[in-house]
């Protein structure tokens, strides 16, 4: 009989736990004939989001939900999958990232092996879009607008299109947007509704990659080694299954919520081919800059970026 403690920082009922965590836990229990059971601690019950990696390392939890961009000092390479690369749209970015972390790559060595953890479930969000409080009809109008972002890569993208990136804690975004502290924000469709932001939005972009989000449930090496081969096999096979299915569901939800927004009167900003080319031109250097910053500090940023791009090309 094996009991596994699994922790995350997601609110109860979050789509990640609905599409990935819970079905995976149930399937593992079922496939091992009840030999493996889980104690689930959602909603920061064991620690803040940025504590999750340390909690698996110390053994407080066996498996935890880790967001690399919350622990950049421990997982500096994974944000490669959050860069605004046009070819990483849809589930392709997550698939390439998952393949990389499941084989002997630089990315895996630096972000997982070095932290004595291994990835199981991997989640990505649909590409981030720009949502504005007043109607805009071209990307040019973003110039000078204050846009709420998270993280330096997304801030760089906003600077490249002439907008002003602003950092504000998530609980204050709604008021900031409604009172004009910011003019818009970089967000994903599915997150608008839980934060009740949809009534404030007038325009939304679509089908552009302004940046991404990558996260994963990791298990500590120590716990992993203590598991019988059969259980390990069940966990990885089922993780593959739910990674694929989960991502498809997330993308479907994205389209559904975009539709909901349009029905609520929000105007969709689709870029013309010329605008797309212009955007690609402007943001081309964001990924290179990200890699160069790491290279400068003696980390193989460029090598990991190449690794990721090569993997994307295999799709």
């Amino acid at each position: 009989q094996i009991t596994i403690k699994i922790a995350d920082s997601l609110p109860v009922g979050h789509y990640v736990s609905q599409y990935f965590t819970k079905p995976w836990m149930e399937a593992v229990t079922k496939q091992t004939n009840g030999k493996v059971t889980f104690e689930y601690y959602p909603a920061e019950q064991l620690g803040k989001a940025k504590d999750m990696l340390a909690l698996t390392q110390s053994g407080v939890a066996d498996i935890a939900y880790v967001v690399p961009s919350f622990v950049p000092e421990k997982m500096p390479m994974s944000p490669v999958a959050e860069l605004p690369l046009a070819e990483a749209i849809g589930c392709r970015g997550a698939e390439a990232y998952t393949r990389l972390v499941n084989r002997d790559s630089q990315l895996r060595k630096l972000d997982f092996d070095a932290n004595r953890v291994r990835p199981l479930l991997v989640q990505s969000l649909p590409p981030y879009q720009i949502f504005t409080a007043r109607k805009i009809s071209s990307l040019k109008e973003l110039e000078g607008m204050k846009i709420r972002v998270t993280g330096s890569a997304k801030a760089a993208v906003m600077q490249r299109v002439g907008a002003v990136p602003v950092q504000i804690p998530t609980p204050e975004v709604r008021e900031a947007l409604s009172r004009g502290t910011v003019d818009g924000m970089m967000f994903v469709y599915t997150s608008l509704f839980p934060y009740d932001l949809h009534p404030l939005v007038k325009s939304a972009t679509t089908e552009v990659n302004f940046g991404g989000w990558i996260s994963s449930y990791v298990i500590s090496d120590r716990k992993w080694k203590s598991l019988p081969a059969g259980v390990q096999g069940a966990m990885t096979t089922l993780a593959d299954k739910y990674n694929r299915e989960g991502c498809e569901k997330v993308m479907a939800d994205d389209l559904r919520d975009r539709e909901r927004l349009v029905q609520g009167g929000v105007s969709l900003l689709r870029l013309s081919d010329a605008e797309k080319a212009d955007f690609a031109q402007r943001t081309r250097t964001v990924a290179e800059q990200w890699a160069a910053d790491l290279d400068k500090r003696g980390r193989p940023g460029s090598a990991v970026l190449k690794e990721y791009r090569d993997e994307l090309a295999k799709n």
């Binding site: 950049p72 000092e73 421990k74 500096p76 330096s152 890569a153 801030a155 760089a156 910053d293 790491l294 500090r297 003696g298 980390r299």
Partner: peptide, 17 residues
């Protein structure tokens, strides 16, 4: 440990931990 391994947050600004 952080000092020995040169742990830092790398981006446009570098934050030593």
């Amino acid at each position: 440990d952080a000092a020995a391994s040169g742990e830092e947050i790398i981006g446009p600004y570098v934050w030593t931990t």
